[in-house]
Structure formats: C-alpha cells, structure tokens
Amino acid sequence: MTTAAPLTTDPNSEAFYSGALVRISRFMLVLAAALTAAAWWRYGWRIALGFLCGSAVAYLNFHWLKRVVSALADRATQPGQVHSSRGVVLRFLLRYVLMGLGAYVIFTVSPASLYGLFAGLFLPVAAIACEAAYEMGVALKSGF
C-alpha cells in the first residue's frame, strides 16, 4: 500500500503568478489615476467622474473575480473539506449588480459621463496589456 505524495508547488512559478496579479492591480490603480487626470484636463469633470466610477467598478470587479477564482481553486484542490459556496456565488453575482447599478445611476444623473464609465470599465484590459508589455520587456532584457 502506497501513500499519496504530498502536493508540491514550484515556488518560482508561484511567486511569478502572484507577482503578476499584484502588478496588474497596481497597474490598474496607476492607470486609473493618470487617465482620470487626463480626462479631466481634456474633456472636463463630468467625463472624468464617469471614468473614475468605471475604474472603481472595474477594480472591485477584478478583485472579486480573483477571490471567486481562488475559492473555486480551493474547492477543486481540496475536495475533502466542506466550503460554503454561498459567499462565492453571491460575490460573483454582485459584480454584475454593481456594474449595472453604476451604469444606471450615471445614465440617469449625467448621460455625458456614460462614455467615461465605459472607458473606465476597460481598465483591466489596459492593465493586462501593461503587464504583458512589462513581461516582454523583462524577457528581452534578460535575453529570454
């Protein structure tokens, strides 16, 4: 009779992936601040406020997505333990409610800000693109 080997994870890859997620979150914060200031200067405070709201919703959305995926991974890798799925599902659905509510409030208060809100919702995509550029730069610098 053999016993199952303990699960081991590669510390290098663990550090790389957790570092990448932290970097993406930081890129989102930096981009939100910089682009809000740029929108204020270029289009006025209404669009900038919409962009800031969209960025906040996108940041929260990404944060909750990370937590939901982490909870899902816990359930998949530790099948013996009982986890409550209510919070996970609630948080997953709350993301859409929050996004819809933000869009509705801005649409009723100031329709001009709606374009700023939509631009802010694309913040994770911009942050992922920045992370890809950063990793490419690091790889080029280290000579692959």
Binding site: T8, T9, L21, L72, A73, A76, L121, I128
Partner: peptide, 27 residues
Amino acid sequence: LGRNPAARSGIQFALILGLALIESLAL
C-alpha cells in the same frame, strides 16, 4: 485543477486573465 493540483497557481492565473478578457468582449 482536479487532475493536477500542483499547477494551481498557473491555472488560477490563466483563468483570471481569461475571464477578465472574455467579460471585456461583452463590454
């Protein structure tokens, strides 16, 4: 993840990026 729990960090990272990018398509 069920087949290879040791690769959790990589799979989790790819899933987060994939879900974020898929959501952006609807946007």
